[in-house]
């Protein structure tokens, strides 16, 4: 059966998400050069993972195949992004 998680955990996750939002907003004032987008996307990925794992219950899913579905989704997205970028980053004339 499905697992029931406590409200306390949800509030904790929510608090972390709010803090990370504040942090990424504050960091956007700091010019870190090429690192700025990296840091911003890293924080976004942490936030996204928290949402998927806890709010969307991916951490508690009893069906292993659903985990496979989630992984497949992100894997195929990365195929789209990375394989297309092999073209853009190696074009001699641009």
């Amino acid at each position: 059966m499905e697992k029931v998680i406590s409200a306390k955990l949800y509030f904790t996750v929510w608090a972390i998400l709010m803090c990370l939002t504040a942090a990424t907003a504050a960091l956007s004032y700091v010019n870190m050069g090429a690192l700025s987008p990296v840091v911003a996307l890293l924080i976004a990925t942490v936030k996204g993972s928290l949402v998927v794992l806890f709010f969307m219950h991916a951490k508690y899913i009893d069906v292993k195949t659903t985990v496979l579905v989630i992984v497949a989704g992100f894997f195929w997205l990365s195929i789209l992004l990375l394989m297309t970028m092999t073209d853009y980053i190696t074009r001699a004339w641009s």
Binding site: M83, T86, D87
Partner: peptide
């Protein structure tokens, strides 16, 4: 099948290095 699509674009002006991968 998801890693080969740019072979439709070999003469369209994509990077030759990318074309080799595809």
């Amino acid at each position: 099948g998801f890693l080969v699509w740019a072979h439709h674009m070999f003469v369209a002006g994509i990077s030759v290095y990318s074309a080799m991968v595809f």
